Simulated scan of single mutants.
Amino acid sequence: MVFKVYFQENIKEVPVRENTMVLYVEGESVRDVRKKVADRGYNVEFVQVVTGAYLEYEQQNEDYKVLEI
């Protein structure tokens, strides 16, 4: 499955909506995705599964790239 991960680049900073970044990761579950990005030092705010029409919509975005970690 593909998951959309909302995060801040620095784990020590307070989350600010305007600085939130997004990446897409393939994984089995939310826990699996969090483990995969844990070593990157991101402050993960939210992990959301992306399927169906929502996935098709996201794939149209020019910034859509799935990380295979």
Rank of each mutant, 00 (worst) to 15 (best):
F3S: 02
Q59A: 15
M21L: 15
V44P: 00
L67P: 02
N43K: 10
R17I: 12
Q59V: 04
V25H: 08
F46P: 00
F3H: 04
E62F: 07
R31C: 06
Y54I: 13
M1K: 00
E9L: 15
E56I: 07
G41Q: 01
F7W: 14
I69H: 12
E18S: 13
E18C: 10
V49P: 15
Y64E: 01
E68T: 13
E26N: 07
K35M: 10
E45W: 08
L23A: 03
Q8L: 11
K12G: 06
R34D: 04
R31D: 04
P15D: 13
I11R: 09
V5I: 00
G41F: 00
P15N: 06
N19R: 14
K12D: 07
G52W: 13
K36W: 01
T51Y: 03
V5Q: 07
E68D: 12
E9Y: 06
N43E: 05
I11T: 01
Q59K: 15
Q8C: 05
K65I: 12
R17N: 11
E56A: 11
Q8A: 05
R40T: 00
D39K: 10
Y42Q: 09
E68V: 13
Q48A: 14
Y54L: 13
E28R: 11
Y57Q: 15
E45D: 05
E13W: 15
F3T: 01
N43T: 00
R17H: 09
E26K: 10
A38F: 02
Y54Q: 14
Y6K: 02
V14P: 07
K36I: 00
V44F: 08
E68Q: 08
V25W: 09
K35Y: 09
V50F: 08
V22N: 06
L55V: 03
Q60F: 09
V25G: 08
Q59C: 08
F3K: 03
L67G: 03
V14R: 14
R34V: 08
Y6A: 08
D32E: 04
M21D: 05
T51M: 11
E28F: 12
